[in-house]
Computed example of a mutant assay.
Amino acid sequence: MAKRKVQRRARKVLGEDPVALVWCELGQPIPTPPKEVHRAAGKGRLKPGHHWLLYVGGVVFFFVLVPMVLVGKLADMLGQTSYGGEGTTRRAARSVGHQANDPTSGVFDGDWNLTAGQLLLRWYGHSPNPKRLVMLARDRVCVAASPRRSMSPTTADDFRTVAEFSFDEARVEAEAGQPRGFATFRLRFADGSWLELRRLAEPEDADHFLRTVST
Rank of each mutant, 00 (worst) to 15 (best):
M1K: 05
K5T: 08
R9E: 00
R9D: 04
R9N: 04
L14T: 00
P18R: 04
C24W: 01
P29Q: 04
P31D: 03
K35W: 05
R39A: 14
A40R: 09
G42E: 13
P48Y: 06
H50F: 11
H50G: 08
H50Y: 14
H51E: 08
W52I: 06
W52F: 11
L53P: 00
L53W: 00
L54Y: 04
G58C: 00
P67T: 08
P67L: 06
K73S: 12
A75R: 14
L78A: 14
T81M: 06
S82L: 07
T88A: 10
A92M: 07
R94K: 01
S95T: 08
Q99R: 15
Q99S: 15
Q99P: 08
A100K: 13
D102L: 10
P103A: 02
L119W: 08
L119C: 03
L121V: 03
Y124L: 04
P128W: 03
K131A: 07
K131W: 09
L136C: 08
R140Q: 06
A145W: 00
A145R: 02
R148T: 02
R148G: 00
S152R: 10
P153A: 00
P153W: 03
T154I: 13
T155Y: 06
V162Q: 13
A163L: 08
A163Y: 12
E164H: 05
F167A: 11
E175Q: 15
P179L: 05
R180P: 00
R186Q: 15
F189E: 10
F189P: 05
A190D: 07
G192Q: 05
E196Q: 15
E196T: 11
L197V: 01
E204V: 14
L210F: 02
R211Y: 02
S214K: 06
